[in-house]
Nucleic acid binder design. Structure first.
Lengths: 226, 226
DNA sequence: CCTTGTGTTTGACTTAAGTCAAGGCATAAA
DNA sequence: TTTATGCCTTGACTTAAGTCAAACACAAGG
């Protein structure tokens, strides 16, 4: 086993046997600063995990301009998308400093998951879970204004209960924290949404008066009064 | 082939043969509003894709409180994380309306990728790619302030070129757009960062005067892990 | 030379939301 | 009843950033 896979978050929660199996097909490679790992259109023979160092992924245009897609550091894997899809590399990879890599050859990896489908399923599960988390985070971050976040939250509760009149199970301070704001702002937002006839709130009793309006608020439009 | 997999974004870019193979193991199930699909601790016999309708995923506490984890709609798949990991379901699933599902049984799915490892690799590639995109989006969204985004951008160029003095390849209006702001704001931010001694900019010539300060400004969020 | 156009900067204003400080209100404890 | 505590609201202020409009810079063409 050439290296400990624990440093790779994607592999960390695999079972010890699966980690062992993966480690068994991995080879180590060391590159100096400035060395190229692969170039655009090279066949994707395998993917890489960074043990130490940093790798720049970039494309260069015919005019010599270069466009940096990403810089990867320790614990990250790269080039797996092209390799998994069985394509040639779509970009170049170059080491920015002395870099130690693990190399997972495509054919061996392919054989591994053929012989050991549970490893494949587990990897799919891991990626799926991380994707879920990221999607949730993006949704949370992109509803940038408090009225939008509040509207989305109330509509979620409504969807769930199937009625427009319900009781919150958080107090307003907790709700503010959950929505990523402070109680004062939440208080003012609620007042405005009451004044404008979207909702009625007394204590924890919520009544949704204008569901369509709330949906607009939660959706594209970001303003209470356009 | 019970249903067209095109409506599922996760499967849409698989090759027609792979889609066919997947469709061949899928069965359809229809549920009425309020019906339970599975409950916490049920064995994960397979995962689901929603053709029509909506499904609520929730946990209930011993006190009867319920916590909604997610509501899925058409085109989304769910329960795949537990199924891939070979675990029991960690939550309950209930239909909010009349719902038509595709069911992919675990054992058949497992056999499918054992016999057809390229399908497994392609699925891994798809998830990997989508995860990449989401991670990029989160990074972009969480650097909320313009000075932080500008600092991170300049440091990325510096990392790449290995020097503190370089020339931008965008004009300031384009740069503003790239950073998700407007030229006026960028102009003011640059003036402030000049006054405060972080950088010097004349035309497209950039000189990074205080790299440590810029790193602090960028907030470490895009920077490399230690 | 002047004109025109594009990109840049500046000023004045507006909005969203956070902070700080001060009250208000209701329920539980004394 | 009074007091205290926790929660909620309100007001006054501050900051980041966007909009609108105007001024500026400078190069290219007439």
């Amino acid at each position: 086993m050439p290296y400990d896979l624990h440093i790779f978050p994607v592999f960390a929660s695999l079972s010890p046997e699966h980690q062992k199996a993966l480690a068994a097909i991995a080879g180590t490679k060391t590159y100096q600063a400035g060395q190229t790992i692969f170039q655009e259109n090279d066949p994707g023979e395998g993917f890489y995990g960074i043990v130490r160092g940093r790798v720049k992924i970039y494309k260069s245009s015919p005019l010599g301009k270069e466009y940096i897609l990403h810089i990867f550091g320790p614990g990250e894997i790269f080039a797996e998308v092209a390799v998994f899809a069985g394509k040639n590399f779509p970009a170049n990879a170059l080491c920015l400093e002395e870099t130690k890599l693990l190399f997972f050859p495509r054919t061996q990896f392919r054989r591994l998951i053929a012989e050991n489908p549970d490893l494949g399923l587990n990897l799919l599960g891991l990626l799926s879970m991380r994707l879920r988390q990221m999607v949730a985070k993006v949704e949370e971050l992109s509803l940038k204004e408090v009225p939008a976040r509040l509207a989305a939250h109330l509509l979620l509760i409504r969807d769930n209960l199937g009625r427009d009149l319900f009781e919150l199970d958080l107090n307003k301070s907790q709700l503010a924290g959950y929505l990523g704001t402070v109680p004062e702002t939440l208080s003012r937002v609620i007042r405005r949404m009451k004044e404008e006839g979207y909702i009625d709130i007394k204590g924890r009793q919520v009544n949704l008066l204008d569901v369509q309006g709330l949906e607009d608020l939660a959706g594209g439009s970001t303003r209470l009064q356009p």
